[in-house]
Write a protein that binds this DNA or RNA. Sequence first.
DNA 1: TTGTAAGCGTTATCAG
DNA 2: CTGATAACGCTTACAA
Lengths: 346, 346
Amino acid sequence: MKRKITLKQIAKELGVSIGTVSKALKGSHEISEETKEKIQAFAKYYNYKPNNIALSLKNRKTKTIGIIIPEIVHHFFTRVIQGIEHLANKKGYNVIVGLSNESFDKEVINMEMLASGSIDGFIMSISKETLLKQDYHHLNETINQGMPIVMFDRVVSEIRCDKVIIDDVEAAKKAVNKLIANNCKHIALITTMDYISVGRLRTQGYIEALNKHEITTEANLILKVDDKLVSEDYIDVLEKEIKALFLMNPNIDGVFAVNELYAVTAMKAARNLGKRIPEDLQVIGFTDGVLSRHATPSLSTVTQYGHKIGEVAASLIIEKIESESSEDPVRTVVIETELIERESTK
Amino acid sequence: MKRKITLKQIAKELGVSIGTVSKALKGSHEISEETKEKIQAFAKYYNYKPNNIALSLKNRKTKTIGIIIPEIVHHFFTRVIQGIEHLANKKGYNVIVGLSNESFDKEVINMEMLASGSIDGFIMSISKETLLKQDYHHLNETINQGMPIVMFDRVVSEIRCDKVIIDDVEAAKKAVNKLIANNCKHIALITTMDYISVGRLRTQGYIEALNKHEITTEANLILKVDDKLVSEDYIDVLEKEIKALFLMNPNIDGVFAVNELYAVTAMKAARNLGKRIPEDLQVIGFTDGVLSRHATPSLSTVTQYGHKIGEVAASLIIEKIESESSEDPVRTVVIETELIERESTK
DNA sequence: TTGTAAGCGTTATCAG
DNA sequence: CTGATAACGCTTACAA
C-alpha cells in the first residue's frame, strides 16, 4: 500500500527540484526534453495525479458544485441531478449532494458545511419548512459572500439569484384545457397547500383555465393535501381523502393533480369506487416519472424535462462561477413543458 | 460582496498574530480571556468559518465519501444514497456522487477524479459494462493507494474490500416458495443476463426452490432480458417479449421477476391478455420501490432495505477511514430481506 | 535550463 | 500568554 505520490517525492527520487517536476509535467518548454521525458516517465509509472485539494487551495476554486434538495426519492429531482451531473462532468466539475430532508435546520447546516470551501456554487430547491418560515438568511448570506446560487423548482422571487423554472400556471392551464376539450364538466383539483409555490401556481392555472371557459370553480372540488406529516400511512390517508372527495361529488369526471403520486392515487381511489378510466373519469398528473409511465392505465401528464432543467441550472452556475465580474444581472430561465397524452385521458 | 474572511485578515484587523487567532477560536487556555473574547466576538460578527479545503490539505482528510453508482433513477439506489447520506452526515461527513451511467470509462474517470484528493473512501456499485469486461484494475489501484472501498449490490468477490450485500439466492427462494405454497404450478422467471451477479443469483434461487419442490425447471419459462440497449422503446420491447412468453406458455400461473419494473410490465402484459391478477396469475417482484407500492394491483415484492444497506456501507467505510491500521480483515455484511405480500399474490 | 520562494488557509510546535 | 515557523501539495514569478 503505497500512499499517493507527490511532486516532492518525485523530485527527491529524481534529484531535481520540485518546481522542475511541476513544470516538466505540464510540458513546459522551459525544461529540457531530456529531463522532461525522464520525469514524465517516472510520474506515469507511479501513476502520479495532482492532488485536487492542493489545487483547490491554490486556485481558490474547487471545481465542484453543491446541490441542495429536499429529497432524492422524487423522480423529478433525480432527473435534475442527472442533468446537472451530466453537464457538470462535461465541464470538469464534480457534484456534491446535500439532502435537506425538507428541514430548515438541515438545509442551513448543509449549506454552511459546503459553503466553507468545499464548493464553488449552489444549485438548490428549498425545503418546505424554509418556505413556511420564509427565513432566507442563509441564502442571502451565501450570496453576499460571493458564492453564486441557482434555484430551481421551488424558488423564491425575493432572492437575488439565477432561477430555472417552468411556467407552472401555463402548464396547469394546458392540462385543464385538455380536460375541458375532452368534455369534462366537473374537474376536480388535487393540489398542495399554498405555501408550496409550485402548488399554488398550478392551482392558479387551474382556476384561470376554468374561468376562461366560464366554468365556475367549486370550492369543494379542490382538495388541498396537507403533507406536512409524511408518515407511514400517508398514502392511505391521501387515498381516503380522495375517496371522500369522489363520494361527496359523484359528478366529477375529470381530475387534475399537481404531481404524479396524487394522480395515481386518485386513479386507484376511483377504480375502487367502480369508476372506469378514462371512460368515467379522466386524469392528468404533473411530472413524468416512473409512476406515470408504468401505471395502469398509464397516466397522461405534464412533463417537466427535469434533465433539461438540471443542465440549464448547471450551465448557469458554471457561467457565474467562471465569470470575473461579480455583478451581472440575474436571469430567470423558463423551461418549456409538454402535455403527454396517455391512457388516462380520451 | 465581501469574500470569506480568513484567520489572516482577523489577525491583521486585530493586530495580533495569526496563530493567536487560531488558538483563541479553539478556546485554547493558552490565550488570555480578554483576547479570546475579543477575537471570538470579531470572528462571530464576521461569521468566520474555517476553510475546509485548507483543513483537508493539512489533515490529509477530506471528510467526504464518494459514491459511484450506475444510475440514480433506480429507486433502490436513491434509497441507498439516502441511507449513506444520513449516517455520513451524522458523523460529520459529506457525500459526493458520481454516476457511471453503466459505462466502464465513465466509472474509471469518475473514480480517478475523486480519488485524487477529493474524498477519503468510496462506496460503490459497479457498472454493467465493467462487469462484462471484468476489468477491475481501477478498483485494485485505488485500494492499493490506501483508499478504502465498500461495494454493495453489484459486488465482485475477487476484489479485496468490504461488501454489503443481500442473500439474493435466499431471497429469490423465499419468493418462489411463496408462489409454490400459493399453488402455482408453472412459474415463469423474468431475469437479467447472467453477467449481472444479482440476476444470476436470483435465477439460481428460483431454480433451487423449484428443485426442492421437485418441480422440473422448464427452459422456456425463463426469460433473460438483454437490457444492454436501454433505448426509447426499451419498455415496449420488454412488454412484447413478456407477452410472447405468456402466449407460448398459456399455463403460466406465477411469475417471479428480478426487479420491480419487469414485474410491473409483466402484470401489464398479462392484463392485456385478459389474465386476472392474482386469480389467474400471481406475481412477485424484487425491490420495494414506488412502482411496487402504487401499481394496481399493488405488487408483492422482496424488499431490500436500501436505506439500511446505505447506512451499513457508510459505517463500514467510515470505520475503515478512521482506523489507523491499514490491514484489517475484509468483511461482508449480509442485510436481511423480507417478502412483502400485497395484492398481486393470493 | 533549473532552482528558489512565496502563497493558498490552517494547525501545531517551539521560542520568546 | 503571544508570536514565529514549518508543514500539507501545488503553481508560478523570479533568480541563478
